[in-house]
C-alpha cells in the first residue's frame, strides 16, 4: 500500500517481467480458483445488498433461500428510522477536518524529519509510530477525564468541555493517525533530491516557502493516497466516537449502527438496507479512487 509513497518523484515503475503464457489447463484452473475465491469474498456483501431489496414479509414466509419479494421500501424506511441524514452529516463534519488536520500536521512533521537531521530524529519518529499501535481502550479513561475538564468556549461545545463534542473526536482521531501519516510522508519526502532545496535556499526561499511551494506540491501522490485511506479509516472509526459522544444525535454513522440494531433487530432486510447505506460512501470512495489504492500497490515498487 505504501509502495507508491516511496517512489521518488519522476521515476516510473520498474519494468515488470513479461510473463505471458499461453492459456494452458493450469492457467484455466488458476482462473477458476481465483474467480471462485473472489465470489466467495464478495458474497457476504452481495447477500446484504440482495436482501436489502427484499420484503420482510416475503422472506419471513418463504425463507431467505428463495427468490422474489423485491422492493425499495427498506431503504426509505431505514433512512427515516435510522435518521441517516443526520448521522451522515455528523460523519462528514468529523471526517473532513480530522483528515485535513492530520495531513497538515503530518506534512509539517514529516518535512522537518526528512529535511533536517537532529539528534532525536529517529526517536521522534518512533514516538509517533508507536502511538499509532497502542490499544485505544488502554487510554480511554485518562482521555475521558482530560476532555471532561478541558474547558472550551460555549460556541464550540454546548457543554463547555471537549467531551461530547465532535471536536474531541476529531482531536483523538488526529492524534492516533498522525504517527502513520508522518511516517509515510517523511519517507516519501526523503526521496526528494536535496539539490532542489539547496537551489531554493540559495535563492533565499524561507523554510515556509520551501515547504509550501516545493515539498507539498511534490507530495501530491502520497497526500492523495493518504487522504483516501484516512477518509475511510476515520469514517469507519467506531470506538472513540461511541465512548466520547454521549448524545445519540451526535453519533457518526458508524457508531449509530448499534442504535440501529435496537430499532430493528429482527427485520434483517431493513438491517441490510441500513448496512448498505452505511457502506455506500466507503465503497464509492474505493471505486472512484481505486487508482490511489492500486497505484499504491503496483506503481514502481520494484527497486530502481
Amino acid at each position: 500500500m505504501t509502495a507508491v509513497l516511496e517512489t521518488p518523484p519522476g521515476t516510473t515503475g520498474g519494468s515488470l517481467l513479461p510473463t505471458k503464457h499461453r492459456p494452458g489447463p493450469r492457467r484455466i484452473l488458476l482462473h477458476v480458483f481465483l474467480a471462485l475465491a473472489s465470489l466467495g469474498f464478495l458474497f457476504p456483501l452481495v447477500w446484504a445488498v440482495l436482501n436489502s431489496f427484499r420484503d420482510y414479509e416475503y422472506t419471513a414466509i418463504h425463507g431467505y433461500v428463495s427468490f422474489g419479494g423485491f422492493t425499495l421500501d427498506n431503504y426509505a424506511e431505514a433512512w427515516v428510522r435510522g435518521d441517516f441524514g443526520l448521522h451522515f452529516w455528523n460523519s462528514l463534519i468529523i471526517t473532513v477536518p480530522a483528515v485535513l488536520i492530520t495531513l497538515l500536521l503530518a506534512s509539517c512533521m514529516g518535512f522537518v524529519l526528512s529535511r533536517f537531521s537532529f539528534r532525536f530524529n529517529t526517536t521522534l519518529l518512533a514516538v509517533f509510530l508507536a502511538a499509532n499501535l497502542l490499544p485505544p481502550q488502554a487510554l480511554l479513561i485518562p482521555i475521558y477525564r482530560m476532555f471532561r475538564s478541558a474547558e472550551v468556549p460555549y460556541w464550540l461545545s454546548d457543554s463547555g468541555t471537549l467531551l461530547n463534542t465532535h471536536l474531541g473526536v476529531i482531536a483523538v482521531n488526529v492524534a492516533f493517525q498522525l504517527g502513520f501519516c508522518t511516517f509515510v510522508l517523511s519517507n516519501y519526502m526523503r526521496t526528494i533530491p536535496r539539490e532542489i532545496y539547496e537551489s531554493a535556499r540559495v535563492d533565499g526561499a524561507s523554510v515556509t516557502r520551501q515547504f509550501l511551494q516545493l515539498t507539498l506540491p511534490l507530495c501530491r501522490p502520497p497526500l492523495a493516497a493518504l487522504a483516501t485511506l484516512q477518509v475511510t479509516w476515520v469514517y469507519n472509526e467506531f470506538f472513540w466516537a461511541t465512548v466520547l459522544l454521549q448524545s445519540g444525535d451526535k453519533y457518526p454513522i458508524t457508531s449509530s449502527l448499534n442504535n440501529l440494531r435496537g430499532e430493528y433487530f429482527t427485520d434483517y432486510n431493513l438491517l441490510s438496507a441500513g448496512s448498505v447505506l452505511i457502506m455506500l460512501p466507503v465503497l464509492l470512495i474505493f471505486f472512484l479512487l481505486q487508482r490511489q489504492f492500486v497505484a499504491g500497490l503496483t506503481l514502481g515498487a520494484t527497486k530502481g
Binding site: N164, Q246, S247, N258
Partner: peptide, 22 residues
C-alpha cells in the same frame, strides 16, 4: 429529546452523568 439505545444509555450512565448530561 435525546434518545440513546437503552442498553448503551445504561452502560454509559456513569460517564454520561459526569460528562455533559441532559
Amino acid at each position: 429529546i435525546n434518545t440513546v439505545e437503552h442498553e448503551a444509555f445504561q452502560e454509559n450512565i456513569n460517564n454520561y452523568l459526569q460528562g455533559s448530561p441532559d
